[in-house]
Nucleic acid binder design. Sequence first.
RNA 1: GGGCGUGUGGCCUAGUCAGGACAGGGCGUCAGCCUCCUAAGCUGAAUGUCGGGGGUUCAAAUCCCCCCACGCCCGCCA
Length: 560
Amino acid sequence: MKRSYEYQRRHDCIVSILREATGKREVILNDGGSHADFATTQAFVEAKGLKQSPLQWATGFVKQYADQIASQAGATVEAKGPYINFHLDETYLPAALAEAVKAGYGTLPKSDERVVIEHTSANPNGPLHVGHIRNSIIGDTLVRCFRTTGKKVEVQYYVNDMGRQIAIVVYGFDHLDTGALPDEKPDHHIARVYIAANRALEQDPSVVDEVNQLMQKVELGVPDVVRRFRSAVGRCLEGFEVTMHRLSVSHDRFVWESEFIRNGDTDRLFGRIKRIPEYREDGKVWIDLTAEGFEKEYVLRRSDGTSVYAARDLAYHIWKARNFDRMIDVLGADHKLIGAQLIATLRLLGEKFPEIVHFEFVSLPEGSMSTRAGKFVSADELMDEVTMKAYDEVTSRRSDLDEDSRRRIAHSVAIAAIRYDIVKVSPEKSTVFDWKEALNFERQSGPYIQYAHARACSILEKAGDFDFAFELKTPHELLLARHVARFPAVIEDVVNELKPHLLAAYARELADHFNAFYHFDPVLQSEGMSRRSRLTLVLAVRNTLSEALGNLGIDAIRTM
RNA sequence: GGGCGUGUGGCCUAGUCAGGACAGGGCGUCAGCCUCCUAAGCUGAAUGUCGGGGGUUCAAAUCCCCCCACGCCCGCCA
């Protein structure tokens, strides 16, 4: 299990020594915080079984393993009472910094593992709003981190192009469309049509019949209806792509749900599913998942013979399972039940199943968002507002820059603010959208981290050429270098735990440490070995910040 | 009614899965810092029943039970 970076190598080495000492596979090795590089409370656990005091065990461990820990992990070990602390030796930080100054710090060698990550997949019935882009940003950050760890990633958008909501949109275009407004994006236009059609639906029951007929016709493949669905959905997706491109989010493939009807996959699924014992047919077709802990019938086909979303979703995942080693879906919390049912059914079929990252909802101060009711803050509107604010900020700070540069910086700053604001919160937390937070460019914001990076760039530019040196002395230098050394492990944590917010926290801490460092330890004014060491450290930090920002989908701008 | 998730100073949030050494940050408030590498910065101060109550443990924000509040889900919708 050889890994390529210094921090992890030493960490893993200590872990294996702890395993040897305890005879256990699961051992405790934590980050040592301010008092050590690593620490363990293993003594408490071991002492219990051996009728020793934790203190005795800790002391015994240190006595027996100190030499091995020194020679293999390059660390000294001490028992601080029952706590065991590990301090990495003086070769550690120079070795780690030598890695950090190289381009691509944190990346791992290419592997053949094929991963498909599905994210966003919003229904094409209106523009992406701040809830949808939580999905996009979590998904896109995962994509970037997976690619950094060498995985072959394909990013997919699953297009729900045959649902009731699209039928409503098509109905609206047939009867209620008044055309796009000047400069209106197609997705925003579709939202207006969708809202109007929903209003008609509420007022006139006969509209329901027409919508139902549209849905049946599209499943049967009636050419004219299929064409109208495709056209509406396609136009909405064009709008989405503009929005996502602006947010630095991209997909490799848009997979249309209706494909799984047209290509026969859904029919083949029904053929297979008949053979599992949980299959039920009583007019409708459904799966009995009570043994898996689901009370409700998991319906796959209506009694009128048409398939429901769940069936097409199963067909989609079976197709993904055939083509990829690992599947990751980023879905809203409203999909928890359907996601669990999907997984349960795939298991019954003996297929690979996806790992699902669920995120809780973003609501507005006045309540939950609704495309149908027209109650949402669109991603486009958000980016417009934040970009304007960013432009004002840049203009007031940097009147020396030309218009074009200020526009470019404002764009990067705005996207940084939005992406960071969203990705920093752990996905299981539901949030209320707050304009004040979105427009804040101070600490714990994307721009704050960009700023630290720009400062580092500025220092290096002024410094000119220098030779690397690795003599770190001050507390700020040491703290900063230790943090730099952890970066590759953070990327791995994000990928292993599917938690992009860990990277957001890391990048912010790195910026904090860097700010403290250059405030107290002058770089350009220092001389000799100290100056060269500090410049090397600044280079390592700049590189690490740049890599971290890149993985967060934020531009690492050199000036701002 | 059942399931899932969340509840951490006035507000937002990390830490909870793998229990341990003073619960980290930020916003806001107050007091300071631009003859000094970009003040989107830095320093200091005040502010906490970690929703409530039981329990397990040498040790609980973290594990178990009960309760409360909020969000989401429970369709032959997607």
